[in-house]
């Protein structure tokens, strides 16, 4: 009897782990495809509007933009249908995919009552949060 209970719990654990793997796997896959489709559409728009202009990527122009300004500019560009802004929004979405993966893991560890890993995952999220403020420019 006790043994059966135990194996039931074991298989439940296994089941939960499987669901966790499915959720994370799908998130990663669709996150990449959705963000790249957006970037691709932006690329087409950009090429239609600017394709005939001469390129110049040989000199790096350093910027000092706050991340919120960057996002603000992208949103503004989106309203005007700027190809570059559409590409950028695709890239930002691509960057958000691993962040979302981290947050879902945090949630799942919480449900599993694995507080050690709730703690470890939080540290990773905090470091990424700090990197936003480290990179802050005036």
């Amino acid at each position: 009897m006790e043994l059966m209970e135990k194996s039931k719990i074991m298989s439940q654990e296994k089941f939960k782990e499987k669901v966790f793997q499915m959720i994370i796997g799908n998130l990663l896959r669709y996150g990449v495809w959705i963000s790249l489709s957006i970037a691709f559409m932006g690329g087409i728009t950009y090429l239609i509007n600017h394709g005939n202009e001469p390129e110049d990527y040989s000199v790096f122009i350093e910027k000092d933009n706050n991340i919120f300004n960057v996002v603000g500019n992208v949103c503004e560009g989106l309203i005007h249908g700027s190809g570059e802004s559409i590409i950028f929004s695709g890239i930002l979405l691509l960057f958000l995919t691993p962040m979302l993966r981290l947050l879902i893991s945090l949630f799942v560890f919480f449900l599993e009552k694995d507080y050690l890993y709730v703690f470890i995952t939080s540290i990773v999220a905090i470091i990424i949060g700090l990197s936003v403020s480290f990179g802050f420019s005036h």
């Binding site: 600017h50 991340i67 950028f88």
Partner: peptide, 10 residues
């Protein structure tokens, strides 16, 4: 992103 390394066209 903040330093301008990410150039959409590239």
């Amino acid at each position: 992103i903040q330093k301008g390394y990410i150039e959409p066209g590239i």
